[in-house]
Design a protein around this nucleic acid. Structure first.
Lengths: 108, 108
DNA sequence: TGTTGATTTGGCTAAAATACCAAATGTCAT
DNA sequence: ATGACATTTGGTATTTTAGCCAAATCAACA
């Protein structure tokens, strides 16, 4: 794998990594459903320390998945791309496929 | 977030995590293009130690993304779900979106 | 101007992920 | 059986990630 290809896969991995955490997946899902949320709302929903949630959001932002807008003292986050739905659909397919195998395994 | 919801996002995250690495993304991409590959071929292409590649594959397998078939001394891996293409499409969208912002930024 | 509320950042510790080498395992042909 | 491959697994060192508290910023408002 030459260094250019390498770099391309690293760039892709950065985006995937940004979603590779339950709290961040939840956030993305929530923004998908609700358009936008401020840090305090997400903190409430996620249930971790606000500083932790803020860091999750910074990570999502640096991957280009979300953008933020400051309004007064609050910062609102929203998705930057709509295709994220595809991600979730695929994850669900995999989970369904895994569940099916599991059932077949138990049926013996 | 109640524990059931929590568990669901953790299960999803496991799948995303499995792809959150340049080598594993490469492998998935390669299997998408080529149907199946043995460990030695993938090792050659990825360029890491075979033991490392084997562990990457084990991780993908435990997430349910790939399945393996032993034929003789060799083990062939292939994708278990086809929807992974959606993943890549979405990643490309994000990357294109990022590139666009970058261009706009430089144009000032 | 001082206080309160929202958010980010510094500092730190604990946990998880990576990658290598060496050793073990399993397969095939000699 | 023995040797040569292909693959996985044990062990370990290094790096990265996660999460919390406390401190720093910044906006709004009394």
């Amino acid at each position: 794998m030459d260094s250019k290809t390498q770099a391309r896969y690293e760039a892709r991995a950065k985006i995937v990594k940004a979603m590779a955490h339950p709290a961040r997946l939840f956030i993305v899902d929530e923004l998908m459903k609700n358009g936008e949320r401020c840090v305090c709302e997400l903190t409430e929903m996620v249930g971790s320390d606000m500083s932790t949630v803020s860091r999750h959001l910074a990570l999502l932002r640096s991957a280009g998945l979300v953008e933020d807008e400051k309004r007064g003292a609050m910062v609102f986050y929203r998705l930057r791309v709509k295709c994220v739905l595809n991600f979730f659909d695929c994850i669900e397919s995999v989970m369904e496929c895994n569940a099916k195998s599991q059932r077949e395994l138990l049926a013996r």
